[in-house]
Design a protein around this nucleic acid. Structure first.
Length: 495
RNA sequence: GGUUCCGUGGCCGAGUGGCUAGGCUCAGCUCUGCAAAAGCUGCUACAGCGGUUCGAAUCCGCUCGGAACCUCCA
C-alpha cells in the first residue's frame, strides 16, 4: 500500500502523512456554533472529516477525534463588538442560553446521525473549559503577547510577529497588506492595532453569558476555545486540524498565533480545509438565503427542490466530488446521485448472498481477476491520494460490475478462485459500509415485500401474466422493482 | 482594491506532460411472455488565443467568464 498523502494548507501541497506518535493520530475539527440549525453546507465539512476518520481507522491508526461545540463567545456581525450569537437567540426566544445550546446541539447530533457520521471521541464545549481559557489568557498576558484594555484582553499581533511569529502564514496573507486594508470598525479604540483579536471580552451589564475573571465579568473570545480544547486533549502539538475553508482566516490563523504564544510550538502539523457547497455557483450560507436544512431535503419542501432526497443519496453525492473542490448543488446532480447510490446499494444487498461454489470445470479468468485486483488496490490508492473519494467510488463501481455478474450467473465464482472471490465479497461490503459510510436505506415494509414476491413467483409459475403485472405495479409504487432472472427472482430498489 | 482558486463531453464530476476515471442521460445488442434488472457496444471533452515541449486538459503568458477569503459563516 502506498503511503497516505494529505494536502496541507500550510505548505499548499500534498505531504506524506506521518503521525507524531504512530499509530496514534490526533485530529481536531472545528464544530458548529449552536445558535441555529445546521445546514447542508455545514454537513459537507463534517462528512469530509468523518470520511478521513473512517479511513485512518480502516488503515490501522488509533484516532482520537476531537470536535468541539461552540456554545459561547462567537459574536454576531463585524469585529469584536457584536452580540454573542447564543445570547442573542436566548433573548429573542426568551430562553436560557443553555436551552438554545441544547436544542441546536441535539439537532446537530440528530442530523449527523441521519447522515451516518460517526461520533467523535471527545466533544468538548467552550463553556465547559472556562478555567482553561482564563488560564490561557493569563499566560499570554504574562508572556507579553496580550494586553488588557477596559476589561477586555487582546492578542497583540505586532508583538507576536516581532517575536518570531508569522501571522498570516496559513492563509497566505502579508501583515502589511492586512494592516493597510483593515476597515474602520466600531470599538477599535480599545485595541493597539486593528488586527489584534479579543481573547477575553468584557461583558456589558445586559450581557447574559458572563463569567468572573481577573479582568472583571466577561466571556472568552471565539478563537481561544479551540486552542485550549485541542491542546488539552491532543497535546501542544497534534497531527490534523480540520475545518471549512471559510475558517482559514482569521479563525485558524488566530489559533496558530495563540498556540505558538502559549506553548512556543506550532500547534498543528497538517491543516486541512474542505471546500464550500454551492448553489447555482454561490456559497451556501444562511445570510444569502440559499441554504438547505436537511429536513427540507428529506421532504423535498424547499422551493428549489423538485423532489425529496434521502440522506444516503446526499452522502453519496458529496463523496463523488473531492473535498477540496467546490460542489454545486442541483436537482439534476442529486437525481443522478440517487440512481448511482441505489445501484450501489442493490449491489450491497446482493453481494451478501453470494457463496463460493467450487467447480473443477470452471475456466480461471485471468483478465477479470486482474481487473478486480486493480480495483481493490485502486480504492486504497485513491484514498491515499489526499482522500480522493471520487476515484475510490469509481473503483467501487468496477467491483460492483463483478458483483452483479456473479449474482446474475454471468460469471462463476470458481472463475475467480476462492481467495479472490472472498476478498471481493468482504472488501465490497467493508469499503461501502465502513469506509464510505454508505448504508442500505431499507424499504418500510420489507416483510410484506417478501410475501408479495412469493405471490409473484406463483403467478409466474401459473403464467397468470395479468396478476404478474399487477404485482410489478405494486412494487413500483413502493419504489422497488422485480428482478426476474433465469436462475432466481428477487427485488431491488428502483434506481 | 488585495490574496487565492476554478472554467472538462447532454448533465454531475475525477484527473498537474504521453497509458485520456466514474456516475447519470441517450442509442443499439444479449436475456425476457412483455418488461425490469444485469452485462456488452457506441457517443469521447478539456473557456479562447499564443508559447514551451518529440508530445499539454495538465507547464508559462494574455484575454474572457465565475467563485472564495480579506467582516460573522462549515
Amino acid at each position: 500500500m502506498q503511503p497516505l498523502k494529505l494536502y496541507n494548507t500550510l505548505s499548499r501541497q500534498k505531504e506524506p502523512f506521518e503521525p507524531i506518535n504512530s499509530p496514534y493520530v490526533g485530529m481536531y475539527v472545528c464544530g458548529p456554533t449552536v445558535y441555529n440549525y445546521v445546514h447542508l453546507g455545514n454537513v459537507r465539512t463534517f462528512l469530509t472529516f468523518d470520511t478521513l476518520f473512517r479511513y485512518l481507522t480502516h488503515i490501522g491508526y488509533k484516532v482520537r477525534y476531537v470536535r468541539n461545540i461552540t456554545d459561547v463567545g462567537h459574536l454576531v456581525g463585524d469585529g469584536d463588538e457584536g452580540e454573542d450569537k447564543i445570547g442573542r437567540m436566548a433573548k429573542l426566544e426568551k430562553l436560557e442560553p443553555m436551552e438554545i445550546v441544547q436544542r441546536y446541539t441535539n439537532d446537530f447530533h440528530d442530523v449527523l446521525t441521519t447522515f451516518n457520521l460517526r461520533p467523535p471521541s471527545i466533544e468538548p464545549t467552550a463553556t465547559g473549559h472556562m478555567v482553561e481559557q482564563i488560564e490561557a489568557v493569563k499566560t499570554l498576558i504574562d508572556k507579553g503577547l496580550a494586553y488588557e484594555s477596559n476589561g477586555s484582553v487582546y492578542f497583540d499581533i505586532l508583538k507576536y510577529n516581532a517575536g518570531g511569529g508569522n501571522y498570516g502564514k496559513l492563509s497566505g496573507r502579508i501583515l502589511d497588506d492586512l494592516l493597510n486594508e483593515t476597515r474602520d470598525l466600531d470599538g477599535q479604540s480599545e485595541k493597539r492595532n486593528p488586527l489584534d483579536f479579543a481573547i477575553w471580552k468584557n461583558a456589558s451589564p445586559e450581557h447574559i453569558m458572563r463569567w468572573p475573571s481577573p479582568w472583571g465579568d466577561g466571556f472568552p473570545g471565539w478563537h481561544l476555545e479551540c486552542s485550549c480544547m485541542s491542546t488539552k486533549y491532543l497535546g501542544a502539538q497534534f497531527d490534523i486540524h480540520g475545518g471549512g475553508m471559510d475558517l482559514k482566516f482569521p479563525h485558524h490563523e488566530c489559533e496558530i498565533a495563540q498556540g505558538n504564544g502559549l506553548t512556543d510550538k506550532d500547534p498543528v502539523r497538517y491543516w486541512m480545509h474542505s471546500n464550500m457547497l454551492t448553489v447555482n455557483g454561490q456559497k451556501m450560507s444562511k445570510s444569502l438565503g440559499n441554504s438547505f436544512l436537511p429536513g427540507e431535503l428529506f421532504t423535498g419542501s424547499h422551493p428549489l427542490l423538485e423532489q425529496a432526497y434521502s440522506p444516503m443519496t446526499v452522502r453519496f453525492f458529496m463523496l463523488q466530488s473531492h473535498y477540496r473542490s467546490t460542489l454545486d448543488f442541483s436537482n439534476d446532480a442529486l437525481k443522478a446521485a440517487q440512481k448511482g447510490y441505489r445501484r450501489l446499494v442493490n449491489g450491497l444487498r446482493v453481494v451478501k448472498t453470494l457463496t463460493y461454489a467450487p467447480d473443477e470445470t470452471a475456466q480461471s479468468d485471468e483478465k477479470k481477476q486482474a481487473e478486480i485486483r486493480t480495483a481493490l488496490q485502486g480504492f486504497h490508492d485513491a484514498l491515499n491520494d489526499d482522500l480522493n473519494t471520487a476515484v475510490a467510488i469509481a473503483n467501487l463501481f468496477t467491483l460492483l460490475k463483478y458483483v452483479n455478474m456473479l449474482y446474475m450467473n454471468q460469471l462463476q465464482p470458481a472463475g475467480l478462485g476462492e481467495e479472490l472471490f472472498g476478498q471481493l465479497k468482504s472488501s465490497f461490503v467493508d469499503y461501502t459500509e465502513n469506509v464510505l459510510g454508505l448504508l442500505e436505506e431499507p424499504a418500510d415494509s420489507q416483510g410484506f415485500v417478501e410475501g408479495m414476491l412469493t405471490l409473484y413467483r406463483e403467478y409466474k409459475e401459473q403464467k397468470l401474466y395479468d396478476k404478474v403485472d399487477q404485482v410489478r405495479t405494486y412494487f413500483k409504487q413502493q419504489g422497488l422493482v422485480i428482478k426476474d432472472m433465469k436462475h432466481r427472482i428477487d427485488w431491488a430498489y428502483e434506481e
